[in-house]
């Protein structure tokens, strides 16, 4: 049960509350489901709603998102059209009104599709800790997490060049469903050969997975069905059973969805 809800008006004040043992509350679309469902421990939360952390800056090709920017804000912003397919694949409009960008980075799989996209874009985070503000690569935070009491304030990434970002999500229903397989990739093709590539998989392991093996297969190779099929076998995935799909099914359909993500067929 929530025993206190603090409403700080700055990131620094929010951080101070976290240091004192409070839990961050973004949109509440994950935390409140647990509060409503379980007779869990008493929690002190600090809401980020009024902490000045909501907003979108686009400066050249550098995009900066405030941590408490909502998914609906992203959906509304025509400058972020390349993320629209990803964002609209997440939950439903009444949830996206509340859910925040930073919250999506910390939800367990098979959720966190925006985090998959941001990882493919090699996003960096501004993190407020006891030693002040520092930058962290999202990839490091996805792998290791953040110490309790630290606060993500901003997410920054380089906008992908037109046509270089791919996002594909397979789910039981076309809308409002958790992921069975999510593929997010930033990929360039020059003279018929794959150049730079970052490939991230969601839904296939308990954590988002950077598909380094697939990237090695793809880099410098022609983007053909044969090469993509080889790439699909190049990483160790540890799929899991849940209400959306069995581990077997996830593993079985992953190559199909990698192909659809990269070749569109």
């Amino acid at each position: 049960m929530l025993i206190s809800v603090e409403m700080p008006d700055s990131a620094e004040a929010a951080h101070a509350s976290l240091q004192a043992g409070a839990v961050p509350l973004g949109g509440g679309t994950h935390l409140l489901t647990r509060m409503n469902d379980e007779a869990g421990p008493d929690l002190r939360v600090v809401s980020l709603r009024k902490a000045g952390l909501r907003g979108i800056d686009v400066d050249g090709d550098t995009v900066t998102l405030g941590a408490a920017t909502t998914l609906a804000d992203l959906e509304d912003d025509p400058r972020l059209g390349y993320l629209a397919g990803c964002v609209r694949s997440i939950a439903s409009p009444p949830v996206r009104t509340l859910a925040t960008v930073a919250g999506n980075l910390f939800v367990p799989q098979p959720y966190g599709d925006l985090a998959a996209a941001l990882l493919a874009l090699d996003a960096e985070l501004d993190v407020l800790g006891t030693a002040g503000l520092r930058r962290e690569r999202l990839e490091r935070v996805v792998a290791d997490g953040l110490p309790e009491g630290e606060l993500v304030t901003r997410i920054r990434f380089t906008a992908p060049a037109p046509g270089t970002f791919r996002f594909h999500k397979a789910s039981r229903r076309r809308l409002n469903s958790g992921s069975i397989v999510t593929v997010a990739a930033r990929l360039t093709v020059e003279d018929g050969l794959v150049g730079d590539v970052r490939l991230v998989l969601g839904g296939l392991s308990r954590r988002l997975l950077r598909a380094a093996g697939a990237e090695r297969v793809l880099r410098g190779a022609p983007l053909t069905a044969e090469v993509v099929a080889e790439a699909a076998g190049a990483d160790v995935i540890e799929p899991f059973d849940d209400a959306y799909a069995s581990a077997w099914y996830r593993a079985r359909v992953y190559p199909v969805h990698l192909r659809r993500a990269l070749l569109g067929a």
């Binding site: 809800v5 509350l25 679309t29």
Partner: peptide, 10 residues
């Protein structure tokens, strides 16, 4: 917005 997930004080 789903009102069941919003602490009203926020």
């Amino acid at each position: 917005a789903v009102s069941c997930l919003i602490p009203v004080v926020t």
